[in-house]
Nucleic acid binder design. Structure first.
Length: 233
DNA sequence: AGAACAATTCGTCAATATTT
DNA sequence: AAATATTGACGAATTGTTCT
């Protein structure tokens, strides 16, 4: 995959705002907006996280003189980075029994085979008669492998920086560090995407469960209405 | 069949959060 | 404070779908 010619963007204090909306778009040949871009990447049926588009809209419409007066706290609140998927999911799981926690990555010696991510699709959260959510065997009892622990072949740990002298050695060290960083980030991105998918699936499951619950309650309400005020015809 | 477009995936960068 | 982790955004590549 060729990565040459990649455009570098200055990023301002914007977690949910890209330069697409911050910069003037005049000199950009790309015509799609942030919202379009994110929706284009949204799979059918997935739940979109609206903050990005919302914030982008705010940013776009905010450049009037009045906007300068806007409380910076508010803005910061909007733009602040939201918690990680792991955190969100774990909070969800503490609220709702049956939603699995995303476990911290564990070292391989704790029994988990390396590089194996077992994960079931969380398609079945059921509600018990007490109103609690319960997981079936299909619930994601995944285990997260520890990707960063395994260095690819060819990545050699160099000597300590103190022992490097020549510019060539320094350059090699820099290259090695960069490759290591890229590799780590590559794995981190994969893991992040996996967590995100998990998070979205989890939300979808919740929606499904709540819809069923809502339907039941409506039916119950109708029944009670009928009992309390039977029709006279 | 193949062109055209849409959707998806992946690696990377950079900003920010979290951990040490 | 430095190191590390997380994740939105981007562009390129790949894959899928539709139309001619």
């Amino acid at each position: 995959m060729s990565k040459c010619g990649r455009k570098k963007y200055m990023r301002t204090n914007v977690r949910h705002m890209t330069m697409e909306t911050v910069e003037s778009q005049q000199d950009r040949s790309v015509t799609h907006s942030v919202a379009e871009h994110s929706s284009a990447h949204m799979q059918t049926g997935q739940i979109s996280v609206p903050t990005l588009a919302q914030v982008a809209t705010i940013a776009e419409t905010d450049d009037s003189a009045e906007s300068e007066v806007i409380d910076s706290h508010k803005r910061r609140e909007i733009l602040s980075r939201r918690p990680s998927y792991r955190k969100i999911l774990n909070e969800l799981s503490s609220d709702v029994p049956g939603i699995p926690k995303i476990e911290e990555e564990k070292s391989e010696e704790e029994g988990t085979p390396p590089n194996i991510a077992t994960m079931a699709v969380p398609t079945s959260i059921y509600q018990t008669s007490t109103g609690q959510y319960t997981a079936t065997g299909d619930m994601p009892t995944y285990q997260i492998r520890a990707p960063t622990t395994a260095l690819p072949q060819g990545v050699v740990m160099a000597a300590s920086p103190g022992s490097l002298h020549s510019p060539q050695q320094l350059a090699e060290e820099a290259t090695r560090k960069r490759e290591l960083r890229l590799m780590k980030n590559r794995e981190a991105a994969k893991e992040c995407r996996r967590r995100k998918k998990e998070y979205v699936k989890c939300l979808e499951s919740r929606v499904a469960v709540l819809e069923v619950q809502n339907k039941k309650l409506i039916e119950e309400l109708e029944t009670l209405k009928d009992i309390c005020s039977p029709k006279t015809d």
